[in-house]
Simulated scan of single mutants.
Amino acid sequence: MVEKRNWFDQGGQSYAQFRPAYPEALAAFFAAAAPATGLAVDVGCGNGQLTTLLARHFAQVVGVDPSADQIAHAKPASGVAYAVARAEKLPLADGVASAVTAAQSAHWFDLPTFYAEVRRIARPGAVVALISYGVLVLEGALGARFQRFYSAEIGPFWPPERKLVDNGYAGIDFPFAECPPPELAIVQSWNLGQFLGYVGTWSAVKKARQLGQEARLAAFADDIAALWGDPAGQRRVTWPLHMRLGQVEVKKPSSPLLVSAGSS
């Protein structure tokens, strides 16, 4: 039986605790694809899940997020610097980044302005990636109950931008030389508390709470707890990774002026 507590009362610290970790292979891929491994920039970094992973493959990583609460709870790591800043005004010099990533965050950006900032801070040939993970997958009856909650019960509380995440940013403009992304997924083994803690970080859950939908959330937690069994039992949770992957084009040198040889 689920402990009678409010699983959905979350702040930046809980966000850092419960958000799923990206696979090591994702950061390794960016390092291999980038023109150099000097500096990577993680935009909308949240609490630094991807930022710290990139630091294992790049000499320096800068994580930026507009939320001071998220940055206050960001994971420290060697070679990582964090800054409270918007995607549309990045605190970096021109032409310094070999990779620019935005994980589970690009749907909040003013994309044309962000793209202009990417071109400004990126070195020629830099990798640019908009990353999202799809709707989580649970097996059996747990999966069916979760899907009903996600689609019908909490669905109306998602902001319109959530559709961009669910379809992997497929419908947005992406003005870079696009490349096929690797096939990757996030796979976690979670107990009941970890699963419900993660659900509690959703913006839709926070919106539902603001609108007095505590009973709806509690009913879902009770149903999931009954299906889960032992709260300490581990269940496999999977998120497919989606990505729009591109490269900042290398500018071709201007044609040299033709100089006439000889004299008339």
Rank of each mutant, 00 (worst) to 15 (best):
V118E: 04
V118S: 04
A152K: 14
E139G: 08
A144L: 11
V127H: 04
L138Y: 13
R148T: 10
G140V: 14
R123F: 02
D110T: 01
F114M: 00
R145A: 15
E153V: 13
Y115H: 09
V135A: 12
G134H: 09
V128M: 02
G134N: 08
S132K: 05
F109N: 01
V137E: 14
R119L: 07
F146E: 10
W108I: 01
S132F: 05
W158T: 05
L164T: 01
A129H: 08
A129R: 00
V137I: 11
S151W: 12
F157E: 15
E161Q: 13
A152M: 09
Y115R: 02
G143K: 14
G155Y: 15
A122P: 04
W158Y: 15
L111A: 05
R119H: 10
V137S: 08
G125I: 05
K163L: 12
G140N: 13
S151P: 00
E153D: 15
L142N: 10
E161R: 13
Y133C: 02
W158V: 06
L164E: 07
A122I: 09
E139K: 13
P160T: 15
R120F: 00
F146D: 05
Y133E: 07
R120M: 02
L136N: 09
R145V: 12
A126R: 10
F149V: 03
W108T: 00
I131W: 00
V137D: 14
L136D: 12
E153L: 14
F157W: 14
A122E: 08
E139H: 13
I121W: 00
F149S: 14
E139Y: 10
P124K: 09
I154E: 15
F157M: 15
A144E: 13
A141L: 12
L138R: 04
G155I: 07
V165N: 12
W108N: 00
L142Y: 08
A122K: 07
A106E: 06
L111M: 02
Q147T: 08
F109K: 00
R145G: 11
F109S: 07
G143N: 06
A126Y: 08
P112L: 01
P159T: 11
F114L: 03
D110R: 02
I121V: 05
E153M: 11
F146G: 10
V128W: 08
